[in-house]
Design a protein around this nucleic acid. Structure first.
Lengths: 230, 230
DNA sequence: GCTCTATAAGGTTAAAAAAGGTTAATAGAA
DNA sequence: TTCTATTAACCTTTTTTAACCTTATAGAGC
């Protein structure tokens, strides 16, 4: 079975490395980032299933990061971890996208159990379109390996780029998609020509999903898109 | 709207009554039980949507109770509340059906937020939707993820910047909004040109809300705005 | 203390510029 | 060929910039 991908943002490296070791020992694939500014760019290639965030980070504040993550990967649970112990801080954590909040110092065993708890909650509802070969978008079904999109009885063959685009959407549904990330992932390079190219594919994707108004690609001018389903 | 039914099991009555009052004040329908043995029989007629359990109870142990509740009402979240502070106790709480665990003494505000968090996870159970999709501004409803603002039957598509501005307002309603914070959040940079730009968007926002006089954007000259609702 | 005036902040509207949408034509691979 | 990807052309919408107008506020002079 594939390992669960866990993003861990912490700047105290002495602590972080111990925790990381334990987590890896328990079978998680851990990405440890100590600089808050590097988190967002990492989302694309790492695609975490759960995030552990320290709050007091250099450069960026953990709360802001939580908010940003909630926008981009809305179904992924976030556990805040902080020496800020006041109830007001905890509340702020929940308001900024947190699914749980642990005070420092904490017990690693307790952290492990809280992680499992969050994952358990998520498991019950079944998103996680990681390596699936069947993905539902509203009334459509997308078969990434077969390059096929079906709607009711109709089947439609997709081209390679169309399928790549839809796969990217599948991994970012109901979240913010930056144009440059999309270009990098699907075209491997974000230059001006490819940007226009993407516009053409977006038009095509909109046409593909035109039967079901619940599936919509919303433009975030100057930034990218939102792919909304349901 | 029907009140949310909350089962609260606690034997320290002095504490319990204070908490109960606050919960009722926040709109919950609270059933307080101080004798653990009476919990199971009450399930049938009360049918709670969330349970708060103290662990050290006379007659029956809170963990056992948690286990029993999990069997009988498996989708109902349980928050343990206990003076037993060791990580091992917390872990035991999660293993016995807990969805969260708070150490005593606790802040009531924090409890309220954790309750909401649990309900939020459950409410939108299939696809766990953490972020708000619907925000009310007086007679208007704002759908930040759909970039939509509705008033009575009318729906109005918003542009990305308009939606960002309204999201910022949503997070600061009835409070002071500093121009520079707003610029930083919505434009990512506060320089003089963007400042004029913001003026244009404020005019547009005022136009958007012109149907309901209860929603108003008040200028705080030299500082920013107040976004008043209600 | 008043009143007047200068000035800067902000309101409003329109025009310019940039981003993106759409469709068709062209180029390139299979 | 034939199918796919890219480029181009033209159009629409959004955002930015500019111009001009209104209003609040501080200070000068009374």
């Amino acid at each position: 079975m594939a390992k669960i991908k866990l993003l861990y943002v912490e700047d105290e490296l002495a602590l972080a490395n111990i925790v990381k070791d334990v987590l890896e020992d328990r079978g998680y694939e851990v990405l440890l980032i100590s600089d808050g500014a590097k988190v967002i760019p990492a989302l694309d290639w790492f695609q975490p299933e759960i995030c552990i965030l320290d709050i007091m980070l250099p450069n960026i504040d953990g709360y802001a990061l939580g908010q940003e993550l909630t926008k981009r990967i809305p179904d992924t649970p976030i556990i805040f971890l902080s020496a800020k112990n006041l109830p007001a801080d905890v509340i702020k954590g929940f308001k900024n996208g947190g699914s749980d909040y642990m005070r420092k110092p904490f017990s690693i065993e307790e952290l492990l159990v809280r992680i499992e708890n969050q994952l358990g909650i998520k498991k019950a509802a079944p998103p996680a379109e990681k390596q699936k070969n069947e993905i539902r978008f509203g009334a459509y079904t997308f078969y990434p390996n077969k390059l096929l999109l079906s709607y009711k009885q109709e089947e439609r063959r997709l081209t390679y780029r169309e399928a790549e685009l839809l796969s990217f959407f599948a991994n970012h549904k109901n979240g913010i998609i930056e144009k440059k990330d999309l270009l990098l992932k699907v075209w491997g390079d974000d230059n001006l020509y490819n940007a226009r190219n993407l516009d053409v594919y977006i038009a095509r994707a909109r046409e593909l999903f035109s039967q079901d108004p619940k599936v919509e690609i919303i433009t975030l001018r100057g930034l990218g898109y939102r792919f909304n389903v349901e």
